[in-house]
Design a protein around this nucleic acid. Structure first.
Lengths: 238, 238
DNA sequence: GTGACGCCATTGTGATCACAAATTTCCCGC
DNA sequence: GCGGGAAATTTGTGATCACAATGGCGTCAC
C-alpha cells in the first residue's frame, strides 16, 4: 500500500516536519502512530484542545488524514469529542481510573500467561535488556525514556501471546491512562519507583505461569497506585 | 450539534432512504449507528466487502461521513481493512473466538455486579419485559428480534453500572461476535435456546451479587458455546 | 473602569474532485 | 471453447472548498 504521489501543489518546498518520510504506509496511518505515541507518552496534556488543522500543519499533511487518525483515537477512548466540538484528552475521574485498573488486572496477567509458552530464551533476554534500559532511565530521571521502556516491556511480553483481539483491548486501555503517567512522574519523579519487572523476568525464566501472573498483577497495582495517588489527589482532578 | 444544511446540489429530490431524517446528530454519527446495528444484528455477512460509496448511496449521504463511521468501526474491531484495501467483517477463528469468550467472562459479570446497586425495581421490571419479548421472538423463530432483545437485555443491565470505559470495551467485543450470532441462529434456529436470563432476573430481585455474576457467566458460556459449535465446526471457518 | 454587544478568526463537518491501486470486463488469439 | 492480457470501471486515499457554529477580541455605552 504505497503512499500517494505527495504532489505538494502549493509553491512551498513541502517538507514534512516530524513525520518519517515514507515507509510505505498511508498518511493517515503515519499520523495515527505519531499521535498515538504522543498520547501514550504524555506529549499531550489532558484538557488542552487538539485541532485538526494544527496537527495537520505539524505533521506536514492535509487535515484529511488527521481527521481519520483522530476518529480512530476517539473510538479507542484516547481522545474525546466534547459537545462544543473540541477534541481533547479526556480528564481522569476516580470512577474511570477504577475501571481502567480493573480492566488491566482482568486482561494483562492473562495475556502474559498466554505469552509464556511462546517466549524463547532469546525473547526473555531482549525483555531483560528493555528492563535494564528502564532502570537507566529511572536513575537518570528521564521520564520519556522510562515511559517508552515500560510500554515496550509490557507489550514485548503481551505480543507473544498471539492474541490480537485481547491485545487491542489492552492497547486501548493504555491509551487512556498514558497521559496521566506523565503527569504523575512529572510531579514526583521516577527515582522512587520500584517495579516488579525483575520478578516477572524470573518467573518467565522459571516457566512459572502463576508467578508471572502475580508479578504482572503486582506491577499493575504498584504503577496504577502511583498514578492514582498523584493524579486523583488534586483538588481539581483535571 | 445540528446537521449541515443538506443542500443536495444534484438535481435529484435527494431523499435519504434508510436513515432517520435528522434527530439533531451529525451525519457521520447517524451512519455509525446504522452501520453498527447492521453489524451487531447480522445485517452484514462476514467476508462480503463493504464499499464506502455503496453505503453512502444506501444511506443517502456523501462518502465522507461513511469514511469516518467505517474508520471508527475498524478501530473497534468490528470491521477489518484488508491489504487490498477492501473493508470486510473479519472472519472468525478458533483463537479469536477464545479471546472474545475470555474477555466477555472477564468483564461482563463484573459490569452486572456494579450495576446491581443502581438497579431499581422499575429497572428490573423493564428488563423482565425485554426477556419476555425475547421469549416470544424465540418461539416465533424471529432471529432478528431475538438478537436485538438479547443485546437490549444485557446492555440494559450493564448501562446501569455507570462504567462507561468498561462498557465501551464490552461493546467493542459484542461488535466482533455479533455477525456470527446470526450465522449460528440462522443455521440451527432459536427454538433450542435456553438462556439464563431468568436466573439473572431472580438474582437481581434478590440483590444477590454472586448469583447474578454466576447467571451472566453461565449465559455467556451457553450462548458462546452455541455460536462456537455452529461457526467453528465448518470446514471453511469463514 | 466595567460590562455587554457585535465582528472576525478558527474549527469541525460535509461535499466534491483528483489519483493510483485493484478489480472486473471484454476481446482477441490460439 | 478457453485462457490471457489490455482496457475500463470501481474503490480507498488525500486535497481542497464551502459552511455553520463556536470562541476570542475589540469597541462602545454607561
Amino acid at each position: 500500500m504505497k503512499r500517494q504521489s505527495s504532489s505538494a501543489p502549493t509553491g512551498d518546498p513541502g517538507v514534512p516536519i516530524s513525520l518519517p518520510p515514507d515507509l510505505g504506509l498511508t498518511a493517515h496511518e503515519g499520523v495515527f502512530r505519531q499521535l498515538r505515541d504522543r498520547i501514550l507518552f504524555g506529549g499531550i496534556r489532558p484538557g488542552t484542545a487538539v485541532t485538526l488543522r494544527g496537527l495537520a500543519e505539524d505533521l506536514g499533511v492535509s487535515p484529511m488524514p488527521v481527521r481519520e487518525a483522530v476518529r480512530r483515537l476517539i473510538a479507542a477512548g484516547a481522545l474525546e469529542l466534547q459537545d462544543n466540538r473540541r477534541v481533547v484528552v479526556p480528564p481522569m475521574s476516580r470512577e474511570r481510573f477504577d475501571e481502567i485498573l480493573f480492566a488491566r488486572r482482568a486482561l494483562e496477567p492473562e495475556l502474559a500467561a498466554r505469552a509464556l509458552a511462546h517466549l524463547t530464551a532469546a525473547h526473555i533476554d531482549a525483555i531483560e535488556d528493555i528492563d535494564d534500559a528502564i532502570d537507566r532511565a529511572m536513575k537518570g530521571g528521564d521520564t520519556e525514556s522510562y515511559m517508552r521502556g515500560n510500554f515496550q516491556f509490557h507489550f514485548a511480553i503481551y505480543e507473544r501471546a498471539g492474541a490480537d483481539t485481547l491485545l487491542a483491548l489492552v492497547e486501548s486501555i493504555w491509551l487512556q491512562f498514558g497521559p496521566f503517567m506523565r503527569m504523575a512522574y512529572g510531579r514526583i519523579g521516577t527515582s522512587v519507583l520500584e517495579d516488579h519487572h525483575e520478578f516477572a523476568i524470573a518467573a518467565m525464566r522459571a516457566r512459572n505461569v502463576a508467578d508471572l501472573k502475580a508479578a504482572i498483577d503486582a506491577d499493575i497495582g504498584q504503577g496504577m497506585g502511583f498514578i492514582g495517588d498523584a493524579v486523583l489527589s488534586r483538588k481539581h482532578p483535571i
